[in-house]
């Protein structure tokens, strides 16, 4: 279980999120919703150790993550699929997978290159192409595959649907929901409500750096005014 308690974080003097608290149960999936700038990305980066944490604590299965270096956090079992993908453009698809390769925190190796290629045949076909030549959707698949190569306990996905055509989002949704069904814990930041609902039962809505709603999607359906207020314009 990932636990975020009283988290206040930002970049230098600029504070982006304040006193956040939520949990992601093991094998569960939580979607962070909210308009851009609401603090979703900062929340994900805080878990990954990539921004300044001023206060609060983040733990994964009892192990404290906050205050550790990003590489230690990754080795503790956190997989990261960043905003903008950040695949290594000069490296081939295979080499990108190599950069993510490591045993899980418990020493287990479940994911290998052939297995992630089964999941994403699109990139298997282009295994020797440099990542810089991939399409947006292929890059996103590669970024997910690269994170899986580290055999994570929890996968952080920052805006996976951003900039992708609906049919590609559909395709990603299928694979990610299959992973979720298999028991991979997911925390995703997403503006696309349809994708978020497909992957997660639980939702945390952020607005100007604060949690304004925590509950299930079903709860949210009963409160359409919340959607209107925090997600729409």
């Amino acid at each position: 279980m990932l636990e975020v308690n009283n988290l206040t974080a930002g970049y230098g003097a600029a504070r982006a999120i304040s006193e956040l608290a939520f949990r992601v149960p093991t094998a569960g999936a939580v979607a962070l919703l909210g308009r851009n700038g609401a603090g979703k990305s900062t929340t994900i980066k805080s878990v990954m150790g990539l921004c300044d944490i001023y206060d609060g604590r983040i733990t994964l299965d009892g192990v404290t993550l906050s205050g550790q270096s990003p590489d230690a956090i990754a080795r503790a079992g956190v997989g990261y699929v960043p905003e903008d993908r950040r695949v290594f453009a000069d490296l081939s698809v295979m080499e990108n997978l190599e950069t993510g390769k490591k045993a899980g925190a418990d020493g287990a190796v479940i994911w290998t290159a052939p297995k992630v290629f089964d999941l994403f045949p699109e990139i298997a076909r282009r295994r020797d192409a440099s990542a810089g030549t991939l399409s947006g959707g292929e890059r996103q698949m590669l970024a997910i595959a690269r994170a899986l190569m580290g055999n994570p306990r929890i996968l952080l996905l920052d805006e996976p649907s951003e900039g992708l055509a609906p049919v590609v989002v559909q395709r990603l949704g299928e694979t990610l929901s299959a992973l979720a069904v298999e028991g991979l814990t997911l925390l995703l930041a997403e503006q696309n409500k349809a994708l978020a609902r497909r992957l997660a039962n639980n939702v945390v809505i952020l607005e100007t750096g604060h949690v304004v709603f925590t509950g299930t999607f079903d709860d949210l359906d009963r409160m359409p005014e919340l959607l209107e207020r925090y997600l729409s314009v």
């Binding site: 990539l50 990003p70 590489d71 080795r75 990261y80 950040r86 190599e98 950069t99 490591k102 690269r146």
Partner: peptide, 21 residues
């Protein structure tokens, strides 16, 4: 593997670190 990591680090060191290196 070392060479691949060096090239990756040259491109985006922070991302590489976030992958556990």
């Amino acid at each position: 593997r070392f060479g691949v990591l060096v090239r990756a680090a040259t491109e985006d060191r922070e991302m590489l670190q976030a992958l556990g290196v």
